[in-house]
């Protein structure tokens, strides 16, 4: 009887430890989504990347992203060509990265289902130009998967993205970036 009680207690303790470990640690995905959207009266331009590498440390709050520029897919092949060759020079500058911190990460209980708001601030690098960005995001925890969503705006000229005058009317001065990623605990 005593043996069974000890065994039961040990099992409960082990279970609790396992649960606690999932409340911290590294959460990661290689299949995050980033969309960018440009709206002008002449034309809407949108592109998606579904293979964004991103992770966050649920203990320290550190959050990082790495996205391949060539992997943004446009509805039209010509737009994609112009984006890569003329504006982003993506063979020379193949990646965009972000490295920052989730504020008050302790409030995001990755071991409990729930919805949490937090601000993420850090450094965004595009075309080797690094700028500070800060955005409010929503973290939704459901059955061990942490979904992070945020939307923010960047100005292409801040990152040395020069838009020729001939197409300036078709490309917005403010590009809306939407991030949507499902993180899983990295074992």
């Amino acid at each position: 009887m005593k043996k069974i009680t000890i065994l039961t207690l040990a099992t409960i303790c082990f279970g609790m430890m396992a649960f606690t470990s999932h409340s911290g640690g590294i959460f990661k995905t290689n299949t995050g989504n980033i969309n960018f959207f440009s709206h002008t009266p002449i034309e809407d331009i949108t592109a998606d990347n579904h293979k964004v590498k991103t992770a966050f440390d649920a203990t320290s709050g550190k959050m990082q992203f790495s996205a391949l520029i060539k992997d943004f897919e446009f509805p039209k092949a010509l737009m994609q060509e112009h984006f890569n060759e003329n504006y982003m020079e993506s063979t020379t500058f193949p990646k965009s990265t972000f490295s920052g911190m989730i504020e008050n990460v302790a409030a995001i209980k990755t071991g409990e289902n729930g919805i949490y708001k937090s601000t993420v601030s850090g450094k965004l690098t595009i075309k080797d130009v690094t700028k500070d960005v800060s955005t409010e995001g929503t973290f939704t925890v459901k059955d061990g998967v942490v979904n992070a969503k945020t939307t923010f705006v960047i100005n292409p000229t801040d990152y040395n993205i020069e838009i020729p005058k001939s197409v300036a009317g078709k490309i917005s001065k403010e590009i809306k970036i939407t991030v949507d990623a499902d993180y899983r605990h990295a074992h």
């Binding site: 293979k51 590498k53 966050f56 790495s66 996205a67 992997d71 993506s90 990646k95 990265t97 490295s99």
Partner: peptide, 21 residues
């Protein structure tokens, strides 16, 4: 072929993938 993703400068993303789409 789209390139290689991941970066040694990002400690959480140090593992690298060559990406094909």
């Amino acid at each position: 072929c789209m390139g290689m993703n991941g970066s040694e400068e990002l400690d959480l993303l140090a593992d690298k993938d060559v990406v094909l789409s």
